[in-house]
C-alpha cells in the first residue's frame, strides 16, 4: 500500500458512537480521523496511510434521504480526496448494509476503490454484490477485528493495482462474474473428495456459491377482469405454417408478434409448433394446446374478460439463457403495455 494512502471511512450512528436506534435519523456528519472500526483499520494501515475522516450517517436518514445523504458523502470525498473508501462492516443490519453498498458503489463511480463487509444474506449483498467487493461476515460484531483485517487485505490489492484473484481465494463475496479456470484435480475427484469431507463434517468449499434467483412478484390487475384486455404469450414455439419467418426451434434471439383480430381459434391448417424441447406433433395437430385462443375467445364472448389483445407473442422457450430471457421479457412487456394490454397469460409447455 502506498505510503501516504488517504482513506475515508463510512459508518452508521451506532458504530460511529453517536447512539442506537434513537439516533438513526441523524444526517451525514464528517469527523476528522478514525472512529469505531476505522481505528482498527488505522492500526492495520500503520505508517502506510491515514484514515483522514470518518463519515457517520443514521441508518434511517441514509435510506430515507438517500440522494441527499449520497450528495453529502460525495462532497466529503471531494474535500478529502481519498485513495480508498471503506464502509462497515454492516453484519446483518439491513439498512446499514444497503448504505454501505450504496456508498461503495458511489465511490467506484468516482473512480475511488471501495471495500465493505456484511452478512451474505444482508439486503445490501443482494443489491450491490455485482458492483462492489464485499467481505462476508457472520451476524455478530464479535468478529470485527478479523473482518476488518480481511477488508484490509482486499483493500491492499485494490489500491496497489495488483490483480484481484477469484472470490474463493481472496475472501470476498463473488460478484457473479464466472470465468473458465482449470483446477488441480479432475472434476470427479473433487466431487468425491467433497462428499467425503461433507460427510465427515470437515470444511469444504462449494465451487458454485448459492445465488438467490431474482423473484418477480406478479403485477396486480389494475381494472376489473371483465373490462381487461388479455394477451397470450406462448413459449411453445408456435409458428405460422411453413415457418415463413424462418424461426429457430431453440435458443431464440427474438420473439414474434402476430395479429389475431377476428381469429376465433388456431388450427393446424395455419399454425404449427417448432420447438426443440418436446414432441411437437400434438401441438401442430391442435395449436390451441400451446396458445389457447379458442378458450380465451369463449371467455371474451361470455364477458368474463373484456377483450382478447390484438396480437399474440410467440417464441420457442428452449435453451435461452436467463439473461437473454429477461431482455426479451422486458421487450414483450413494453410492447403489450404500449398496446393497452392489462394482463397476459404465459402458456407453459
Amino acid at each position: 500500500m502506498a505510503g501516504s494512502l488517504k482513506v475515508v471511512y463510512f459508518v452508521n450512528q451506532f458504530f460511529g458512537g453517536v447512539g442506537a436506534e434513537e439516533k438513526a435519523n441523524i444526517p451525514v456528519e464528517v469527523k476528522k480521523g478514525p472512529i469505531g472500526p476505522a481505528r482498527l483499520f488505522q492500526q492495520l494501515l500503520g505508517d502506510g496511510g491515514t484514515v483522514e475522516a470518518t463519515i457517520i450517517c443514521g441508518d434511517n436518514y441514509f435510506n430515507e434521504q438517500r440522494e441527499q445523504a449520497l450528495a453529502d458523502v460525495t462532497q466529503a470525498w471531494r474535500e478529502a480526496k481519498p485513495d480508498l473508501v471503506v464502509a462497515g462492516p454492516a453484519f446483518d443490519a439491513g439498512r446499514y448494509g444497503l448504505a454501505c453498498g450504496a456508498v461503495c458503489a458511489a465511490a467506484q463511480d468516482l473512480g475511488i476503490p471501495a471495500i465493505t463487509a456484511m452478512h451474505p444474506e444482508n439486503p445490501g449483498v443482494l443489491t450491490y454484490r455485482r458492483q462492489v467487493y464485499i467481505v462476508p461476515t457472520g451476524t455478530s460484531p464479535v468478529d470485527l477485528p478479523d473482518v476488518v483485517s480481511q477488508m484490509f487485505q482486499i483493500a491492499q490489492k485494490l489500491t496497489s493495482g495488483e490483480e484481484m484473484g477469484p472470490a474463493e481465494t481472496e475472501g470476498y463475496l463473488g460478484r457473479g462474474i464466472r470465468k473458465v479456470s482449470e483446477r488441480s484435480e479432475p472434476g470427479y475427484k473433487r466431487a468425491v473428495d467433497m462428499l467425503a469431507k461433507k460427510l465427515r463434517g470437515e470444511p469444504f468449499q462449494t465451487e458454485v456459491p448459492f445465488q438467490a434467483p431474482e423473484a418477480v412478484p406478479a403485477a396486480s390487475l389494475q381494472r376489473d377482469l371483465s373490462q381487461a384486455t388479455i394477451a397470450l404469450i406462448s413459449t411453445g414455439g408456435l409458428i405460422p405454417i411453413g415457418n415463413p419467418d424462418r424461426q429457430v426451434s431453440g435458443n431464440a434471439e427474438r420473439y414474434f408478434s402476430y395479429p389475431i383480430d377476428g381469429l376465433e381459434s388456431l388450427t393446424g391448417d395455419d399454425w404449427e409448433a417448432f420447438h426443440g424441447g418436446y414432441y411437437n406433433q400434438i401441438a401442430s395437430d391442435n395449436p390451441n394446446y400451446i396458445l389457447p385462443l379458442s378458450h380465451l375467445r369463449h371467455l371474451e364472448s361470455q364477458g368474463v374478460i373484456g377483450r382478447v389483445a390484438s396480437q399474440i407473442i410467440t417464441l420457442p422457450g428452449v435453451s435461452t439463457p436467463v439473461a437473454k430471457s429477461k431482455h426479451l421479457g422486458a421487450e414483450m412487456a413494453q410492447e403489450l403495455k404500449d398496446a393497452g394490454v392489462d394482463a397476459c397469460i404465459l402458456v407453459a409447455t
Binding site: M164, P166, Y188
Partner: peptide, 13 residues
C-alpha cells in the same frame, strides 16, 4: 463433462 473427466471448472470473481 457429465462425470468430471477433466480439470476444467469455473471460478467466480
Amino acid at each position: 463433462d457429465h462425470y468430471g473427466f477433466s480439470k476444467l471448472s469455473s471460478v467466480e470473481y
